[in-house]
Every structure is written in structure tokens, then in C-alpha cells.
Simulated assay, not measured.
Amino acid sequence: MKKKKNRFPKKTALLLGAAALLLLGSTVGSTRAALTYYSENYVAGVEMSSIGITLLENGKTVGARNYDKNGEWMVTGGELLGDLLKDGELLVPGKPYDEQLEVRNSGNIDSYVRVIVTKSWTDKEGNEVPVTTLDPNLIDLHVTEANGWAEDTSARTAERGIWYLNGALKAGESVDFADYLSIAPAIRDMMTKSVEQSGNATTYTYTYDYDGYSFRVGISAEAVQTHNAADAVKSAWGVDISDVITNVSGN
């Protein structure tokens, strides 16, 4: 008779997300764009004892979900992108703005982690703008690949990128994910010109194609336990761990 192997439960591990919506507007004749913003943080997941993950922005926690010793989830949240601009400052396309994003293993077991970045545009009515109208790649959240992050290019779309950390993130340790955010300067050239003739006078009016549009950036950090990693990662993320993480340990 074959003995049954004890396997770690195949459950979706911890999910943590932080999302922000930023409004990008403009005035005719200006090469700058006014920026206002609000943010909404969200968390979701299922119970997994001793696991936890925290997302930090410029050293401050903007989202966390941790399983405590009493068997309850401890959830914290804060404003994302709240300090991107100083009071009265206008966003300048092409200028990098400090956006130090950091992922911390706030549990007490080693974990594999990934981060999902989503980017999109919406029009004045809040409808999503097709990528053929305004490219989400104009929104640049710069990922610090030197820290061990690698993108799963097979999962890349115009609006989404998935990044895996190579190797386990040890309990209590942190790793930088991104260091700045900018809007590509090419957006300044996206304008429509109209010409009006009145007698001997000619009036040229330039209207930015993105006037009144909004750009949306979403960050979701996720963790999976290293124990029985192949099954755990396959169950949680639907991928083979060897395809996305080269340095695998703790199986």
C-alpha cells in the first residue's frame, strides 16, 4: 500500500493591492499638465498562517495584510501617490517623480513574491480609453530590475506587466521594486490644431488630445509560501515556478 504524502494545502496565498487614480488635464498652449489625484487601497486573500506582505511607498506603508498569532488578519492601508507633487505643483511630462515602492515580507515564513502593475487611461466620462487611442506605455513606472525583479514577458499586455522576484524573500526582509514614475514627454506632441481666419488675422488653436483624460496605475503585491513551492505557485499563480523563478529554494 502506498503511503499518502502530506502536502501543503493548495490554496491561493496572500494577495495585497494598492491602486491609485490620477487625473491628468491640460490648458491650451501649455506644455505642462495639471495633476490632481485620489487613491483607493484594497486587500484580498485567504487564510495562510504566518504569511504576510506589506507594500511601502517612500518608506511609508500604503497597504499590508498579515496573519497574526490569534488567527486573524491584520489589515492596514494608507494613501498611495499622495506625495507625488507638492502643493500647487504641476506635473511636467518627461520629468521623473520619486516613487520609491518597496515590498516587505512582513510574515514569519520565507515567501516567493510577485508584483502586478496595471496602467490605463480613462476619458472625461470615466470610460476606459482604448490602447489604440492613448497608449498606457506613456505611463512609466520604472522597475528596479537590478534588485532581482524579472518581467514575465509572456504575460505582458499593453495594460499589464507581471514581475517576479528571483528567489525567496526571507521573513522580515524588504526589496525595492520601483524608484520613479513619469509621463512620457511624447504626450506633449499629441495635439489637434485648428485654424480660424478672420480678415487678415489667422488664429491657431492647439488642443491637447488628452485634455481631461485620467491615467490609472494599479499595484498588486502577492506572496506564496516556499514550502512545496511548485504546487503552491502553480495553484496560486497558474504558472510553473521554474518558468518564472530561477533561484528556487525551500521545497
Rank of each mutant, 00 (worst) to 15 (best):
D152K: 02
V46T: 13
S50M: 07
N147H: 06
P136W: 04
T27N: 13
Q225R: 15
V92N: 12
G148S: 06
N66I: 13
Y206C: 02
D123E: 08
N137W: 03
D98N: 07
E47H: 06
Y42T: 12
L84S: 05
Y213C: 10
V75E: 14
W121R: 02
G45A: 13
N105D: 12
E159G: 00
G172D: 13
R160D: 05
L16D: 12
S214G: 11
G238C: 07
S106R: 02
E159Y: 00
A171M: 10
Q197E: 13
L24E: 05
N247A: 13
Q100V: 08
G161K: 07
A44W: 02
A158I: 00
V103K: 01
T207D: 14
L55R: 03
T36M: 08
S106W: 04
F177A: 04
L84T: 08
L24N: 07
A20N: 10
Y210N: 07
V131P: 00
V239D: 10
A232K: 05
L169K: 07
V217E: 05
N247I: 02
M48I: 11
D179S: 10
K193P: 05
I241T: 05
L165R: 09
G78D: 15
V117Y: 09
L138A: 11
L35N: 03
P185T: 11
Y97R: 05
A19P: 00
P136M: 04
V195W: 02
T122E: 14
K170S: 14
L90M: 10
T205C: 01
G167Y: 07
L91S: 00
G29E: 13
P185D: 15
H227I: 12
L81S: 01
Y204H: 11
Y213M: 15
F215W: 12
K2V: 08
N251G: 09
T61D: 09
V113T: 10
T133S: 14
D179V: 02
S106I: 03
Y112T: 10
G250C: 10
Y204T: 14
T12C: 04
D140V: 15
S50K: 13
E128Q: 08
T132F: 01
V175I: 15
W121D: 04
T153R: 07
V195R: 11
P185R: 12
D189H: 08
G238D: 10
A221I: 14
Y97Q: 06
P136Y: 02
Y67N: 06
E89Y: 04
N105V: 12
A44T: 11
D83N: 15
L15M: 05
G25I: 01
L91W: 15
S174G: 03
A230P: 01
V244D: 07
K5A: 08
V224A: 15
A230C: 00
I245C: 07
N251C: 03
L15S: 11
H227V: 13
T61I: 13
N247F: 04
S154T: 12
G107H: 05
S154A: 13
S198A: 13
N147C: 01
